[in-house]
Design a protein around this nucleic acid. Sequence first.
RNA 1: GCGGUUGUGGUGAAGUGGUUAACACCCUGGAUUGUGGCUCCAGCAUGCGUGGGUUCGAUCCCCACCAAUCGCCCCA
Length: 421
Amino acid sequence: MLMNAPRGTKDILPDGIGQWLYLEQKIREICGCYGYKEIRTPLFEHTELFQRGIGDTTDVVEKEMYTFTDRGGRSITLRPENTAAAVRAYLQNKLYAGTALTKLFYIGSMFRYDRPQAGRYREFHQFGVEALGEMNPAVDAEIIILAVRFLESLGLKDLSLSLNSVGCPQCRPVYRQRLQEFFKDKLSGLCEDCQSRYDRNPMRILDCKHEQCQQLSIGAPEITDCLCDECRDHFSRVQEYLRTAGISFQLDPRLVRGLDYYTKTAFEVKYAPLGAQSAVAGGGRYDGLVEEIGGSPTPAVGFAVGLERVLLALEQQQLLPALPDAVDVFVVALGENVQTAAFQLLMAMRSAGLSAQMDFAGRSMKAQMKQANKANARFVVILGEDEVREQAATLRNMQTSEQEKVTMKEIINKLCAEVKG
RNA sequence: GCGGUUGUGGUGAAGUGGUUAACACCCUGGAUUGUGGCUCCAGCAUGCGUGGGUUCGAUCCCCACCAAUCGCCCCA
């Protein structure tokens, strides 16, 4: 217990950090390219922000939040996603001032209390993008393209992009009513969950995985048939832009995002080989959220990518670049009397920009040589009492096994020349 | 919240109701005086997830808990 990280959390160890740095670098690269600026918001927020933003009846808010009362009696929640917080920061800091369109991205930990399984953790990492202030469907497209291109840039193939429109406050109620009419006499055949969904959010019945519910929902009206003129037009223009960009997608009238704030465009990128948790990215437009949180009506679009899932996929496909870590020089010191001189030399090498290591345990030469070998050292500098007396050291090339005596004065220059050449 | 599988050293793992818990890797030391990668030798779990119970006796049997893992719900 004491020695175990809490359930659903993981340490990222030195051996694994390279993957994360690589991912983050790719993220910053593409976001810079598309003109999105990084933002970092607190890991926790007032509980109310998520209740209002995400929606009281969503699973995330109902059963997955890490909520606690702080010492001041405030209800605080570890962020389960970053869109609501980004919008909060956008409003609080008036990021809308001076521009029509604010483009943000973030990378960070999110927290959801859920049973861990492949590709799902209680603390997990998302990369996400938000574009606030523009209703033009070109922005929807830009966002989707960014998500797809990002994943492609990592080498992933066979991604599938699903696209839908979930309507707006004008047309969604119409659809909702039509759905309820459709399911009215089928209600008793639906699973328990769906029976309660019938009242709360009938659209969710459509993507229920129960056989029965699937069967019963055959022939159900589709949202795309009920869209108002504005939503219909918006949707078709998004598709146009995507086609123009050469992005392939499938329309999925049953795609319903789990968070209440979505309007119009909803999309999801799947990577099938991942198994049960194959959704790698998801997002859409959320024109009502800014107002919900207390700002003036502001159209917005965004998405989030699950980084653990991406990493899982990259691992499966062996797409992670392996960076062999080598060290330029390993200093071998023979005997206590030369420790100080060796230490001095080590520091001088580092000051010169060389990567240098040495053994501090006072071990035998053989042991130190083994260590140098294991550390992948290109050169070994041997310092014994003779050398110190002569103000020199033995320089050994570990690849060729050639070695020569070099004076203290020239050794660093020589090494620098060798390493850089 | 529900279900399946699993839980032996740093790692991968064999194993038994009863003196010394295989084997491999890793690691550490050594194979004539200051030289690595190959080879050889030696060392390396008073302990078998935790807590109870059964028993003369349990790592091996039973129960609970915890954790890992996969799935359901939902999501990234």
